[in-house]
Amino acid sequence: MARQGTIVFFKLETTGLGVTSCYIVQLAASCENTIFNRYILPCIPIEERATEVNGLTVSYGQLFLHDVPVSTMTLYYSLTTFIDYLGRFPGPVLLAAHNSRRFHGRVLMRVLEKFSLFEQFKQVVSGFVDTLQLSKNLYPKLKTFNRPYLVRYFLGGKYNAHNAVEKAKQLEELFNYWDPDNDDIEDVTDWI
């Protein structure tokens, strides 16, 4: 299928589910085997529910993924290098995430604005594609639309995503399997 621009699949791991208050602890993306990954030491505690989902904890000023220490960078540096990463792709770039409308896109926009990076960001990104809504539009008769179920159903594999990089890569695989047309994509895109 001929598409203009590039779709980059991204995933945030956060300290919680509060769109207006959570802190990003991992920012990852995947596009055609080009990976972006940054861990960020949060300045607020990680909620227990979030740790159950993402496996991230903080102890004595160190971030751990499943009890293994990871190198961290500042949130500002992570955002600026993410914008640089996105700028390497033919534009306009669309960022795709499962539930981007209600969570991932909103959280990312909030922190970009907080650090006065939104203008720089929108020079390379033109919108957000919500793959949750896309899956509902393409396959309305499925019993559920969460990523683990979709991976098992369409890719026939065991859902084994232990961090945001693996989740972004699996989302890209799902999207490529679905092979939506431009109209399907436009229907679930929030333009910046």
Rank of each mutant, 00 (worst) to 15 (best):
F9M: 12
T80E: 11
Q62C: 08
S126C: 08
P45A: 12
L94M: 11
L150W: 06
Y153S: 01
K167E: 12
P45D: 13
L112K: 10
E119T: 13
E52S: 10
V25T: 14
K169R: 05
N54A: 07
K158R: 09
K158D: 13
F9E: 07
T72L: 02
T20A: 14
C31S: 14
L86A: 07
F115M: 02
L108W: 05
I46Q: 05
F115I: 11
E32Q: 14
K143G: 11
E173T: 04
N54Y: 08
H162C: 15
Q123E: 15
N160L: 13
I192Y: 15
P69I: 05
I40V: 15
A2Y: 14
R106P: 02
K141Y: 10
L41W: 05
A29P: 06
H162M: 12
T72C: 09
Q170G: 02
D181W: 08
T131E: 05
S126Q: 08
E32P: 01
L94D: 03
M109L: 15
Y159G: 06
W178Y: 10
L150Y: 00
W178R: 02
V53L: 15
A28V: 03
L75R: 00
F145G: 01
A50I: 07
M109V: 15
E166S: 11
I40P: 00
G105L: 03
K169S: 08
R152Y: 13
R88K: 10
D67G: 06
T14F: 07
C31R: 04
Y60M: 10
V70Q: 07
E32F: 14
I40S: 03
K141H: 04
R110G: 05
T189L: 02
L174S: 00
A164W: 01
R38H: 08
D84G: 01
F145L: 03
I83T: 03
H66I: 08
